[in-house]
Design a protein around this nucleic acid. Structure first.
Length: 285
DNA sequence: AGCCTGCCCTGCGAGC
DNA sequence: TGCTCGCAGGGCAGGC
């Protein structure tokens, strides 16, 4: 699931619990997720304090007092659950874990309150890594990664330049993390729909004002999704502390056969580069 | 270099 | 009811 808006929502949910807290105990239920945990993973975390919880693209970054950063990627099915954010809900003594709970962080908050953050990942496409904070932008995960779509570097001029000359469908360009960070299949579809641009159009032919329109549509789509995530977060935090999935009103994603909200034509599903694309063949040109 | 396919893993819903 | 098949929001290796 997690594209930029979902990862940002997870970050906002975890930050109040993790920032300022110290890793007291880290429990790994297995030696790897998608990749092996790095050498000494547990020892390098235990005793370190989380200075800041940030996000880059679809990655969560916990900057630690040790000078390292804990890098976390949720893959397709990764999620976090929080226990003990409020008094009286946390009982460390009983270590019963749900299926696919792979990592358990037991944290001590400033003032001594404890909290537990559990990482669950059914498909294990997620992973965790450690890098020196000073060099983390140059580590293998972020080498060559494009700008944040909601940051100042993602300008009309930049986007025009990156689409120029590309002989690939524009949807593939949106999914390419080197062009822009954090966009996945859902929001690529939604942004193209919002902009009225066909996903099948070659990136090179998305130029000038059409490129600007797509860039603006992408930014608006992501902003709206983050806002929707924020409201979902309040609901989740009020119930069981689970963070991760949320769905809100997609206009075309997973709506094949439904009428387009603008023109009434059927939303279509096609395959591009091995994954589903949803779009309106009448309004998107 | 750029682009495409296949693969990692488990669960679920559709169809028979 | 129970089986099989296809598909799932990500990223990477390996091929052309």
């Amino acid at each position: 699931m997690p594209e930029l808006p979902e990862v940002e929502t997870v970050r906002r949910g975890l930050a109040p619990v993790m920032e300022g807290a110290v890793f007291e105990t880290v429990l790994l239920q297995r030696a790897d997720l998608r990749f092996p945990f790095p050498p000494g993973f547990v020892a390098r975390l235990e005793g370190a304090r989380v200075e800041e919880l940030a996000r880059r693209g679809k990655y969560l970054l916990a900057a630690l007092s040790s000078g390292e950063t804990l890098i976390m990627h949720l893959g397709m099915s990764g999620r976090f659950a929080i226990e003990g954010a409020r008094p009286g809900r946390f009982h460390q003594a009983i270590a019963h874990h749900a299926a696919h709970d792979h990592v358990v962080f037991d944290l001590v908050r400033p003032g001594g309150a404890r909290a537990r953050v559990t990482y669950n990942d059914v498909r294990r496409f997620g992973f965790m890594d450690l890098a020196r904070t000073a060099e983390r932008e140059r580590c293998r995960h972020f080498q060559g990664m494009g700008p944040e779509p909601l940051g100042g570097e993602f300008t009309d001029a930049y986007f025009r330049a990156r689409l120029k000359g590309r002989r690939t469908p524009v949807k593939a360009a949106l999914l390419d993390q080197r062009v822009v960070a954090g966009v996945g299949n859902i929001y690529a579809c939604e942004a193209l729909y919002r902009a009225g641009v066909s996903p099948r159009r070659l990136a090179a032919s998305v130029a000038g004002l059409r490129s600007d329109r797509l860039r603006a549509a992408l930014v608006e789509t992501l902003h709206e999704a983050i806002e929707a995530g924020g409201s979902t977060l309040r609901d989740f935090a009020a119930s069981d502390g689970a963070l991760g999935y949320f769905q809100h009103g997609f206009r075309v994603y997973d709506r094949a056969g439904d009428p387009c909200g603008r023109c009434g034509a059927d939303v279509r599903r096609i395959a591009q580069a091995g994954r589903s694309t949803f779009y309106c063949g009448r309004c998107q040109r």
